[in-house]
Amino acid sequence: MIVTHPTSLIKAVEQATTATDLIAAVQALAEARLEIGIPTLIAVLGYNNPAAAVIAVNGLVQLGKVAVSPLLELIDDYNYGARAYSIRALAAIADPAALTVLLNAAATDFAPSVRRAAAKGLGGLRWSQLPPEQVYPAQAQALETLLSVAEDADWAIRYAAVVGLQALATSKSFTHDLLATQVSAKLDRIVQTEPDLSVKARAQLAQQQLDKCVGSQLEQPSEGGSA
């Protein structure tokens, strides 16, 4: 195996002149899993090259927790395409440090792609990484935002809210009965009133997953459900 110096991997990304070169360079940098390469991977999210951006997101997700602070600090307020990729990376890493950014993005971002990614991500955060006393208030905030996002005019955002609600309600640390009741009631209402066949079907799938989850908790109280 050829050992490449980290800075040359970064330079290769910065100096790529063709789309093919860029993709290869981003791939190499992502595979190297270098903390020092994180800002470069984040910069790639704004290059308007979807293939390179997807590789960069995967690279950032592989790096995990260490990428969270840079992602939050370097979020692109001007380029919504870049912002959507950042939110996807944060959603996949699922560190609850991203809660506030995800809440704001899901509720207020003008770009549908950002709102979708944030709504999905809100449900899937790793709540157990929070101090125990913060879990309930954080989940209540996520739920409140998802309930309102589920009313959006855009089908894909409503769909993403359903995915978020399912992830939230099936997470192991989602134990509060009041919140669980709210999720179930919302899904019931979506199934009854949603005009869009695809969104309605997704809500039915979420109901089924919730039922399974409750079932497995009853059978194996120590294990909890799975997403």
Binding site: A156, Y159, S198, L205
Partner: peptide
């Protein structure tokens, strides 16, 4: 249907 939904989920 679930196969398509899984794909949609992954693209959100």
């Amino acid at each position: 249907a679930q196969r398509v939904m899984t794909l949609i989920d992954s693209l959100l």
